[in-house]
């Protein structure tokens, strides 16, 4: 197995790591950097629980090799809040009751963040489309979709 020295920025900190060729970004985050907020639901790019922002785009981190992330900027759920202030998507998810077991929550929040970065005022169809790759078995999605509408409003008032 070949190893590679890479550096990447994760939640604002520069990380220099030595990774084997087959290591996924998900395992790098969870195992090497102990950022366990990113969840492993299927390791096959199907459930969305491991979604992170890679250079601003939402990706399933189980489908990205760590070695591809040399020089990249990664944001995980741990990087959404700043200085103790929750990101609007987090605050709204709490308030609107979008959380049950919480296992899909980190991926949902990242997909929601990516959506609001693209469009700060998305319509209902756009919201449900943006989350179609994030599976949830508890909530029935209703309050999650509601949370994202609330997040858009909250973000507008903060801005």
């Amino acid at each position: 197995m070949a190893f590679h020295e890479i550096s990447l920025t994760v939640n604002g900190s520069l990380e220099q790591v030595r990774v084997p060729s087959n290591l996924t970004l998900m395992r790098l985050l969870r195992e090497s950097l102990a950022l366990t907020g990113t969840k492993n639901g299927c390791s096959a790019g199907e459930c969305g629980a491991c979604t992170v922002l890679l250079n601003g785009e939402p990706v399933n981190s189980c489908m990205v090799l760590a070695v591809e992330c040399d020089g990249a900027e990664v944001i995980t759920v741990e990087g959404l809040a700043s200085d103790g202030q929750l990101n609007p998507v987090q605050a709204a998810m709490m308030q609107a009751g979008g959380v049950q077991c919480g296992f899909c929550t980190p991926g949902m929040l990242i997909s929601a963040r990516a959506l609001l970065d693209r469009n700060p005022d998305p319509g209902e169809d756009e919201i449900s489309e943006a989350l179609v790759g994030n599976l949830c078995r508890c909530t029935g999605y209703i309050r999650i979709l509601e949370s994202i509408k609330e997040a858009a409003k909250l973000q507008a008032t903060r801005a």
Binding site: G37, T38, K39, L86, Q90, V99, F103, P106, L109
Partner: peptide, 12 residues
Amino acid sequence: DAREKVTGAALY
């Protein structure tokens, strides 16, 4: 448990 779950701090 909402805050720990939205910040990624919740432990599984």
